[in-house]
Write a protein that binds this DNA or RNA. Structure first.
Lengths: 205, 205
DNA sequence: GTAATGTATGTCAGCCGATGACAGATGACA
DNA sequence: TGTCATCTGTCATCGGCTGACATACATTAC
């Protein structure tokens, strides 16, 4: 990897870390792009060359997680019940999270803490999740040969994403260990699986 | 109702209708507040006295729907299974939609059409829904005496909201009748109920 | 009917997020 | 070293949104 690429990656992470720290100090909305860029000593214009928007920075992990999900989904056998495939795809992203570097782990925990004080950010995260939902639902529909009028693919993905969201949110006590969080999300996923009628994802509707 | 209030209501609806028409003509993002205000012949500043933001205008029905849901939820007996109460609350909002005035019906259909060409708006809508979700989950937790660490209240609401969302979205063919849309949402709700294990909402988790 | 009060509106100034255009700086590579 | 591609800063600009203030208007009391 050349010097240029290394420098870019360094700037990218510096912006991310500076932003997370500022967000936690003074709040997400109260933090301006100029401040973030100032800490890293780049211009505001450059900030937008690294992140499409303030929101994209705060939700930097979304794109990666979706890639992991899509990849795992594609790798599942076509004759597997579709919701089972989805659950495997979700588990893959959880594994990916649990195996992340210490730096990334720290970033995750900071972001998790930020969520508690920033409802608007939670909303934006859900919105991004909804976009992913569309793409995953289309993929499920394709894999199972369902038409556009069949609501089950969309419903399956919505349930799957809801499990993750609910698992991610809510615990009042401080989360200091990422594995704890991942375990919680895993157990929520199991709770959801227990709550669904076996074979529900094979019906048509 | 005094002259003042009547004038306000008239301006409010004029802004809403002007906005919806402009959105459909030239797109949501391409339409500026100045344009909307211009059609109604008020200043841009006044626009923001009627709607907190462009987004709040586009999602004007959210607040009302949440009120209807909360009201119906409060009216349900406490010994009813919580998900059943939620389903009743959702049906109440669907009834409310179906019984709306012709003008409101037209606005709904315009908005529905707008959604097809404006993914960002779908996202914002989901984000608003997520905020409602928090409040409803808290209410369910209160009603059933569950603690903050019990994920089921949140999960129930998430599933309920997902049904509505999936029912609302997706049909490729043009929707020209609101009752059709409401029927679709109702049937999605039934599909969800069939997919869940009876009594799942009485467990603890 | 008039005066006092309260509320709605317009104007103005300004912040912030975001984008396009252009020029200068810097790493990549022959 | 010199050429080229790419990264960066500066500048200008737009649109969403907010606060402050003065004015116009509806409401209420007398």
């Amino acid at each position: 990897m050349g010097l240029r690429e290394r420098k870019k990656e360094k700037t990218r992470l510096a912006l991310l870390d500076a932003a997370l720290d500022l967000f936690l100090e003074q709040g997400y909305e109260a933090t301006t792009i100029e401040q973030i860029a100032g800490v890293v000593e780049v211009s505001s214009r450059t900030f937008f060359r690294y992140f499409a928007s303030k929101e994209h920075l705060a939700l930097w992990f979304h794109d990666h997680s979706e890639e992991v999900m899509q990849a795992e989904l594609s790798a599942r056998p076509l004759d597997e019940p579709p919701f089972t495939s989805l659950v495997h795809a979700l588990r893959a992203t959880l594994r990916d999270m649990a195996e992340s570097t210490p730096d990334d782990t720290e970033r995750f925990l900071k972001l998790r803490k930020l969520y508690d004080s920033t409802p608007v950010l939670v909303g934006r995260s859900v919105a991004r999740g909804a976009e992913t939902e569309q793409r995953l639902a289309a993929e499920i529909a394709r894999r199972t040969g369902r038409g556009d009028d069949d609501r089950l693919p969309h419903l399956m993905v919505a349930f799957a994403m809801a499990s993750m969201r609910v698992g991610f949110e809510c615990p009042i006590n401080e989360i200091t260990d990422l594995r704890e969080l991942v375990a919680r999300m895993n157990s929520t996923l199991e709770l959801v699986q227990r709550s669904l009628v076996p074979g529900w994802d094979l019906a048509r509707g």
